[in-house]
């Protein structure tokens, strides 16, 4: 059982994981180097927990209890008692390696050091420490509170004990474990990719327009949404970054080549629902 969880990085993902863990009764130290980011994250968490009370998902007591279990900290040493530390900082290998070096020095030898990376090599991150058997990828998907799966990425060095403790921890959080080996895009991003990419390819060849392709995938294929509706929701910039990372980490495999249509749309600022225009136009968030 995980009693103490450390989270590094109080951005959207870090804060969401903190909330999930706190609601599961786990004590969370939420670390960020930036005090302002940390304060903003706490305000967001408070709002989110209050809202859950308003809509009857939580009692006021559950909400307060969860909030008091989240301890904002700006010193790495405060993570020292953690059973698991999850890193959710910017996707930059140099920064992550440096962080893992410090985490290794600042935690118990038994602490599992996990990365929430979706596009970097967990193996490369692990190489910065002297306990690679304790290093693992825990890829939580956005939005964390809704998506039921977490990809657990093992390197060649990750020990079976570490994996078992991660599986138990994710069970505590009510998540379904997807076991993957450390490889570009793991499996989720990699298999979602052709859903978007092949649709772009078809659009680029003028076989059908975006609305038609969406209609076909929904009516014929039974998908709850079409690929272009999905891209608009994910954000074309976010999806382009994922694709670029896949393309780069696969050493330029042509299946993962970013499509010029998507590049052009990102360049012109049409990022999807959040910018009011993607493949569809949106007014007040509605198509």
């Amino acid at each position: 059982m995980v009693k103490h969880l450390g989270i590094v990085g109080a951005g959207t993902m870090g804060a969401a994981i903190a909330q999930l863990a706190a609601l599961a009764g786990i004590d969370v130290v939420l670390y960020d180097i930036n005090d302002t980011v940390l304060r903003q994250a706490l305000e967001r968490l408070k709002r989110s927990l209050n809202k859950a009370v308003e809509i009857g998902e939580l009692t006021a007591e559950q909400s307060t209890d969860a909030f008091t279990r989240i301890h904002p900290r700006t010193r790495l040493i405060d993570l020292s008692h953690s059973d698991i530390v999850i890193e959710a900082v910017i996707e930059d290998l140099r920064i992550k390696k440096d962080l893992f070096k410090h985490l290794e020095a600042g935690t118990k030898p038994t602490t599992i050091l996990a990365s929430n990376t979706s596009s970097l090599s967990v193996t490369a991150i692990a190489s910065a420490t002297h306990r690679p058997e304790k290093v693992v990828g825990l890829h939580f998907l956005y939005p964390v509170e809704i998506v039921k799966i977490v990809e657990v990425a093992r390197t060649e060095e990750t020990s079976e004990e570490t994996l078992q403790r991660c599986r138990d921890f994710l069970n505590q959080l009510g998540k379904t474990v997807i076991s993957v080996t450390d490889s570009p895009g793991f499996i989720f991003n990699r298999i979602v990719h052709p859903f978007h990419s092949e649709a772009l390819q078809i659009l680029g060849e003028h076989v059908a327009d975006a609305e038609q392709i969406d209609r076909i995938m929904k009516s014929e294929g039974g998908f709850p949404f079409g690929p272009f509706e999905s891209l608009d929701i994910v954000g074309l910039d976010v999806s382009l970054n994922t694709t670029k990372a896949l393309f780069e980490s696969s050493s330029g495999d042509s299946r993962f080549r970013p499509h010029p249509i998507q590049k052009r749309m990102v360049e012109s600022g049409h990022l999807g629902k959040k910018s009011g225009r993607g493949f569809y136009t949106y007014e007040e968030g509605k198509k």
Binding site: I149, T176, F188, I191, V192, G221, F223, P224, F225
Partner: peptide
Amino acid sequence: LAMKLGANFP
């Protein structure tokens, strides 16, 4: 499992 639960593939 990943594609059905994670991406809502039918």
